[in-house]
Design a binder for these strands. Structure first.
Length: 586
RNA sequence: GGCCCCGUAGCUCAGCUGGAUAGAGCAACGGUUUCCUAAACCGUAGGUCGCAGGUUCAAAUCCUGCCGGGGUCGCCA
């Protein structure tokens, strides 16, 4: 049930009818037009721009087309009036029963209201977080994690068959550094004085338990081995521990992935999926041995030309071709990622989404080129960039430094601020915009803090339903009962305003899902909450507007139906954002 | 220097893939509580949508060029 999609369908039908009537040229193609809520309430409930969009190709005046459409559209029984306005807008005003029906629809559909078949269960893969398994997650990871998770929720709601995925970078040099750092802690756990952690190794305390666990499991067995023997043992042990820790951190944010994909697995067990993926590209003529030019502005004197295995990503819009093998013959990180994405395609995904941090933007064109090449253009990859998060404490910038040990972990933030405020704040901004995160503001429990404002609207709705059941004897506040209420008394402007906002929810979902922009939901919920609070407070001055009329069961039931519908939509929206919808705030 | 993101009210930001008179919160000023949660609400004031061109019935939105801020730039991950 999407009111605006419904109107668009009616207009299309009317246009077809006009074509067969001779009112429009028979060979006319219909370009995309919009049916949307007008900004100005005096312009009716739905504004349609079809006449203006069609004017040129139909070689007619827009207002003439609009008049012809008007005649068709106003015949519908639920339409109060259709006006032709401005340069050729069709402004449609519905009869009030449309809004009454909408409330009943929401009560009937419940949490399914607004869900969409946009994705038609197509397989879609969202890869996010993918933090290196070398330490705990810090705040920088937090935004991408929350964003990816909410986006995945949104796409599920929009009808996609979504898989949430985490790519484990367990094959590069960094995990060897991890292993050596853990080995040092292992020796420490065995009683050795290891002194200061050498430059180039990870100094964090979080490796101490790993060392202790190694000591408990292996005793002194590793200490006399040469590095090439203990390193693989310690490495896989430490990676497993780090992943455990990362999963715990993510769980603190209510984030879970269905698939953890190991980079190392691409070339383990006697197989080489990287070579296989490169061979696929080679067969397409996209691989060659060559040298890259020194980039302009690169004033490094140590530049020297090297012959490398290169992928011709420039054929797909990249600035330069990209290396797949290092000079020592081993694969680059990119080569592994190419193989990983080939694997996603082979698993049947045609829609791929990656969530990147702002420091990886330069990586986007080559990744898109790789997917375009490997899929022959039959898959789409959208890479969403989440911009930097700047930390503040009561207005003062909070500088982080790994070396000084003042970097803030994700866990610390969640523990101090709480899961819901963290998640909401991370989503209360466009992803490509930098975000200021102030600990003082985020923990504040007032309307300045949108998460409390929205949650309060939900709690307030729940409270009204509770109170009504207590105050009005015999009143049934179940959705099934409220659906049968006489809703015709809902005619106050504030009530109608609320319903109209609820009517926009399905359209909002489709727009946000199409654009991959979960933040729209956070803003929508804020506006919806505001409309509810407004109507509530109007009851202060005008007691006849209060939701509960203890001597009028009919009016009370009708308003409770509206409140229930509002509560339902707030809850659906918050669920997508991964934020609790509490029934009480106390 | 190349590429990417950002530039909208004093501040922080929305603006629904081009629609009609550009919105919200904060800050400022003035109001609302014998009443379903004041963790709320109402009102006033505040704008050359960075600048200049272009595209069209219509541009904050699309294109080009500048200006300013941030990010990034061969084998790291």
């Amino acid at each position: 049930m999407n009111l605006f999609a419904d109107v668009a369908a009616r207009v299309t039908t009317a246009l077809e009818a006009l074509k067969s009537d001779g009112g429009l040229p028979a060979d006319l193609a219909f370009p995309a037009f919009d049916a949307e809520p007008p900004r100005d309430a005096t312009h009716g409930d739905v504004a349609v721009n079809a006449a203006m969009v069609l004017a040129k190709s139909a070689k007619m005046k827009p207002r003439d087309i609009a008049e012809a459409l008007k005649a068709k559209l106003e015949a519908a029984p639920d339409v109060a009036k259709v006006e032709v306005a401005g340069p050729g807008f069709l402004n449609i005003t519905f009869k009030n029963n449309v809004w009454q029906d909408l409330i009943r629809t929401i009560l009937r559909e419940g949490s399914a209201y607004g869900a969409s078949s946009l994705g038609q269960a197509g397989k879609l893969n969202v890869e996010y977080v993918s933090a290196n398994p070398t330490g705990p997650m810090h705040v920088g990871h937090c935004r991408g994690a929350v964003f990816g998770d909410a986006l995945a929720n949104l796409l599920v709601f929009a009808g996609y068959d979504v898989t949430r995925e985490y790519y484990i970078n367990d094959a590069g040099g960094q995990v060897n550094v991890l292993a050596r750092s853990a080995f040092l802690r292992y020796r420490e756990a065995l009683g050795e004085d290891i002194g200061a952690i050498p430059e180039g190794l990870y100094p964090g305390e979080y490796l101490k338990p790993v060392g202790a666990a190694l000591a408990a499991e292996h005793g002194h067995a590793l200490i006399n081995m040469p590095e090439e023997r203990w390193l693989p043992i310690v490495r896989s042990f430490a990676i497993a521990k780090m992943l455990e820790m990362i999963k715990d951190d993510l769980a603190a944010l209510n984030i879970t992935h269905e698939v953890f994909f190991s980079e190392a697995s691409l070339t383990s067990g006697g197989q080489d999926k990287v070579k296989a993926a490169i061979d696929v590209l080679r067969q397409k003529g996209l691989i060659y041995e060559g040298t890259l030019e020194k980039p302009k502005g690169h004033d490094d004197d140590e530049w020297e030309d090297r012959v490398q295995t290169l992928f011709k990503s420039t054929a797909f819009g990249d600035d330069e071709d990209r290396a797949l093998q290092k000079s020592d013959g081993s694969y680059t990180y990119f080569a592994g990622d190419v193989a990983y994405h080939y694997d996603k395609l082979q698993r049947g995904f045609r829609h791929l989404i990656n969530v990147f941090g702002a420091d990886h933007v330069g990586y986007i064109p080559r990744m898109k080129a790789a997917v375009a090449a490997l899929s022959d253009g039959n898959a789409d990859l959208d890479i969403k960039v989440v911009n930097l998060v700047r930390l503040f404490k009561a207005g003062e910038p909070y500088k982080m430094s790994k070396r000084a040990g003042t970097f803030v972990t994700l866990r610390e933030v969640v523990d101090e601020v709480g899961r819901d405020p963290v998640r909401y704040m991370m989503l209360y901004r466009k992803n490509q915009e930098t975000l200021d995160f102030d600990f003082a503001k985020v923990t504040e429990q007032s309307k300045d803090n949108p998460v409390f404002y929205v949650q309060y609207a939900h709690a307030r709705s729940a409270s009204v339903l509770r109170n009504a059941a207590a105050q009005v004897p015999g009143l049934n506040v179940s959705p099934e009962a409220l659906e049968k209420a006489d809703l015709s008394i809902l005619s106050d402007s504030g009530e109608i305003d609320l319903v109209k906002r609820l009517a926009g929810f399905p359209k909002l979902i489709e727009g946000a899902a199409t654009a991959h922009e979960p933040h729209r939901i956070a803003f929508y919920l804020y506006d919806l909450a505001s409309a509810l609070h407004t109507q509530w407070t109007r009851g202060n001055d005008s007691p006849h507007l209060r939701f509960i009329q203890s001597n009028d069961g009919v009016a009370t039931s009708a308003r409770l139906a509206l409140i229930y519908a509002t509560k339902t939509v707030i809850k659906s929206g918050l669920e997508i954002l991964g934020v609790e919808a509490p029934d009480a705030m106390r």
